[in-house]
Structures are given as structure tokens and as C-alpha cells.
Simulated scan of single mutants.
Amino acid sequence: MTDSQRFLSLDVFRGLTVAAMILVNNPGSWSYVYTPLEHATWHGCTPTDLVFPFFLFAVGNAMSFSMKKYAGQGHAAALKKIGQRTLLIFGIGLLLNWFPFFRWNGENQLVLKPLSQLRIMGVLPRIALCYGFAALIIHFAGERRSFVIVGCLLLAYWWLLPAFGQSDPYSLEGYAGLRLDKWLLGEQHLYKGEGVPFDPEGILSTLPAICNVIFGYLAGSYIQQKGKDYPMLCGLLIAGCVLVFAALCWNLVFPINKKIWTSSYVLYTTGLALLVLSILMYAIEFRGWRKAASFFEVFGKNPLFIYVMSGVLVKLYLLLRTAPQQNLYGWLYTHVFRPIGGNYPGSLLFALFHVGLFWLLGWWMDRKKIYIRV
């Protein structure tokens, strides 16, 4: 199997997750979102809850190709490259959290967003940390021991939550990671989407999330070692089914939960990622259905850049106002998309429009051979 063939399936899988990120992050109105496009309230898993772990899996899959370059280099050179990339992605995440640097106060005046209230964690900071730690583990431990480390991390997290949690350790109030985040980061630097200071991309839950990246790396390495044949594909399918079954069994005592990123959630999402990747590989590499996959391939060639740009645009929508109490985001939904389809369809149409908008950006960049690697 040639590099272009291998990377095509990877690009499509990664692009699928980026398109899904844009779709679920940009409804016209959060009051009118179809259930599959919402996160689970707490325990459980919706299609939306698969998007982020799938992206981490894709990060690991890409690492199985890119980290070959470190093999002939010393530890110092590898550490430098891994550290630089980790810090760069984390820094971009912090800037995106702070962007657009100004906000409206209660007197309809633009004021500087205080750094004292800057959210430190988030999607990009988690990607950075998961990439960095996974790369270090793989570089120094190798593949076999990395697999053992994954098992240890997942079991350790299972032990940590009851050991340091309160009453119900799998609830928001009893979750040990909440106390850790408050202590290390401070309440002012946490996400408040749950109505209370709580970060679903917090410090403690980053530990099991690292495993999604390592699993992605091991899957990519397995594909390269076995080559393009049906036994390889069957191996991916069987591994996916085994992990999903194990996750559902573990769910009985350690609930599948994205917001605290439980170990059963890691196995469940990794298993489903393997199944989806198997289907894509069969369709693209074995059957040659490439035209049908070209839409998502565009997203996969500049994934982080397109994701960041989608966040930048939405934040600009929220900053720009068409009236004293209405921002551009709300105006577009109310005056453009809701009149076309009504509440729920209009909200979905708003999200689909932005998926298409950023596809055009990715398509233009691809035509111009512009590929921004972070």
C-alpha cells in the first residue's frame, strides 16, 4: 500500500471528525438542537460524544507515520520537536479561548477580556497535552510497553476516582477532577457551561484521553505492518468489536461518560473508531470509492487550521452586533435560516451552512497546495 493510499483513508477519517466538530459546535440556536447533535447530559454517549475522541484517535494514527522521523534521531532532538509542537498547539488553544480579546459589558461597552478569567483548558489544550504525553510514551517505551501503559492508565483512573472522589465519585459534585481543577487552575479559569465551574477537558480526565491517541498510533502501526489485505481489515474489525464489548461490560460498574472521560468511554470510542476506520478503508482502499470520500478529504488536509478558523468566525459573530442586544450569530439564525426551515431545521441548516463554508476554505487551500502543519 502506497503512502498516498494510506493517507487517503486517514485524511477522510480525520476530515469526517473535523466536519462533525463544526456541525455540532455551530447550531443556529442551542435551544433547538436535534438530540443526536447534543452531548449526553451526563452518563451515556450520543453520536456527538464520539467526535472529540475520534479526532484524538486520528491524531495518534497520523503519529504512527510522522514519528518514523524520530527513529534515527537522538532523544534530545525528539524531545525538542515534541515539546515545540505541544507548546504551539497549547498556545493556539489559549489564544482561541481569549479571542476576540474584547467583550461587551452590561453597559454595552467593549472592554478587554480579563486574563484573570481566561479558560486555560479546552479542546486544543487537551489535544496538545494528549499528543505530547502520548508521543513521549511511545518514543521512550515503544509500542508493546505503550500498550501496557494504556492498560495501567485506564485502571489507575478507575481507582483514582473513588479513592479521591466524594460520595458518588462518578457524579459532577463528587468527581475528584473537579477539586483538582479548582485547586490548580482556580474557578475563574474553568468552563462554566454546566452552570457551575467545571471543565470537561480538565487536568485529571486528560490522563485517560491520552490513551485514545496511543490507541490511534497502535492502529496506524498495525495497518502499516500488515499492509493492505483482508486479514488486516478483519483484525481491525475484531479489535473494534472486542473493545466495544469490553466497554459495555465495564459500563456496568464504571459508566461511559464523556464529561469525565471514563476508562469505559475510552474503550467504547476507540472500538467504534476502529469500526468506522475499517469501513472507510474497505470503501476507499479496497473498493476504490474515492470520489464519495473526497468531501471529507478536504477537511482532513488542514484539520487544525480549519477547526481554529471555525472557532474564530463564531467568536467574531458573537462580538459583532446588529442591535444593542443582538449579535450577528443570533441575527443570522433569526433572519436568514429560521425563516427558511423553522426552529429545528433552521438551526441545523445554520450548522450545515458553516460546514459547507469551511469546506470551501479547505477546498481553496487544497487547490493552492496550502497545507498548514502545526
Rank of each mutant, 00 (worst) to 15 (best):
D11L: 13
V12H: 05
A20Y: 07
I22A: 05
N25T: 10
W30C: 02
T35P: 00
A40S: 14
G44W: 04
T46H: 11
T48S: 12
P53F: 02
F57G: 04
A58L: 06
N61W: 15
G72V: 15
H75T: 05
A76L: 12
A78C: 09
A78R: 11
Q84L: 06
T86D: 01
G91H: 01
E107C: 05
E107F: 03
N108V: 06
L110D: 14
Q117F: 04
I120P: 08
L124R: 01
P125W: 07
I127E: 05
G132C: 09
L136I: 00
F147N: 12
I149F: 05
S167P: 03
S171H: 15
G177W: 08
L180V: 01
K192T: 12
P197N: 09
T206F: 01
T206P: 04
P208K: 12
I210H: 03
I214R: 15
G227C: 13
M232I: 05
G235Q: 12
C241W: 10
L243P: 00
F245W: 01
A247N: 00
A247D: 09
L248D: 09
V253L: 06
I256T: 10
V266E: 07
L267S: 11
L267D: 00
I279F: 13
L280K: 02
M281S: 01
Y282N: 11
A283P: 04
K291I: 10
A293N: 07
F299E: 06
L313R: 11
K315D: 03
Y317N: 08
L319H: 12
A323K: 10
P324D: 11
N327T: 01
G330R: 13
Y333N: 15
P339T: 15
L348C: 07
L349V: 07
L352E: 14
V355P: 15
G356N: 10
F358R: 14
G362R: 10
G362Y: 10
K368I: 06
